[in-house]
């Protein structure tokens, strides 16, 4: 990247590192950090909306809907999340292909499952066999986002459900006394107040979500873990311009520090957010803020 990198004298000096760390593959490594951040940026709101829908369903007065919501919340309990990740990636992929298969190839008579194979007609393949590489990558990233959203949506549903139940009942009764309908009570009284009760749980969930991002590697995405393993492995002069011994330990140390920093920054931001949301709330946090102002 730098002009002095062409000079062989740079080898063995400290400047060599600046050349090494800016070579092409390292750029892919840095790009994979963007991938992780993109995953977080997309998953967090989607999972939150899944969670909101789940919590709303669990509160429903129609029994089947309520069972559905409660079942969704309960299903991720007791089973390791990583099992869900491995499961959903295959299950979703096959589900999409099966649906396309039903629509695109109605005259296909063979069963889809034949022994150990899952066969759909070539038009229904996702992505199509002829698709360029980036489509494959985007598709697997898309699957990963849905998987993360489903699993974390269930966690979020549990937190939001708890938050909704924590809103003082007197508030809802007052709303009823003012003649609000159930729907109005929900949207105008319950939802604005529940966030402060749900926030500790949601902050915790965000920290957990950050720490779950390296699992992307298991879903076949070329993420930071993938690149750290690739780049850190022993390189000999036959295969690369930058031969070095096994440096994987240092790459993973870097990832460790990255995550620690990310967690710390998130904690500080969430703490600030909590203070903001506590303003004017009937909680001990809100009370403390009120006293600060009047004192």
């Amino acid at each position: 990247m730098f002009s002095y990198c062409a000079d062989p004298d740079a080898l063995g000096t400290f400047r060599w590192f600046s050349c090494y760390l800016t070579n092409g593959v390292h750029m892919s490594f840095y790009l994979s950090f963007v991938k992780v951040l993109a995953l977080l940026a997309i998953t967090a709101p989607v999972a939150l909306s899944f969670g909101f829908a789940g919590a709303m369903a669990a509160r429903s007065h129609v029994p089947p809907v309520s069972w559905l919501g409660k079942g969704y919340i309960a299903i991720v309990r007791g089973v390791p999340d990583i099992a869900f990740f491995l499961f959903f990636v295959i299950a979703l992929d096959q589900g999409f292909e099966w649906m396309r298969h039903q629509i695109l190839c109605p005259d296909w008579t063979d069963p889809v499952r034949q022994g150990n194979d899952f066969l759909v007609c070539s038009n229904a393949k996702l992505p199509l066999g002829s698709a360029p590489e980036w489509v494959h990558q985007t598709y697997s990233f898309f699957l990963a986002v849905i998987t993360f959203s489903i699993v974390f949506g269930a966690f979020a549903a549990n937190v939001l459900y708890g938050g909704m139940r924590a809103v003082p009942h007197a508030q809802l009764e007052t709303a009823e006394a003012y003649g609000m309908s159930r729907r109005q009570t929900f949207w105008r009284v319950l939802v604005p107040q529940m966030w402060v009760y749900a926030l500790p749980g949601l902050s915790n969930l965000w920290l957990v979500l950050i720490k779950a991002t390296p699992l992307l590697f298991l879903l076949g995405i070329e993420d930071i873990v993938y690149w750290a393993r690739e780049l850190g492995g022993t390189k000999t002069s036959r295969f690369t311009d930058y031969p070095h011994p096994d440096w994987r330990m240092w790459y993973f140390l870097f990832l460790l520090i990255f995550y620690l920093g990310f967690t710390r920054v998130s904690e500080i931001v969430l703490e600030k957010l909590m203070v903001r949301l506590s303003h004017g709330q009937a909680t001990t946090g809100g009370e403390a803020l009120r006293k600060q102002v009047t004192a």
Partner: peptide
Amino acid sequence: IFLFRGSPLFIQFFFAYFLFLS
């Protein structure tokens, strides 16, 4: 406590394995 709670267990496994390897 911060070191082990603030970083993913997955990365801890990787780091420990390569640390022991070297």
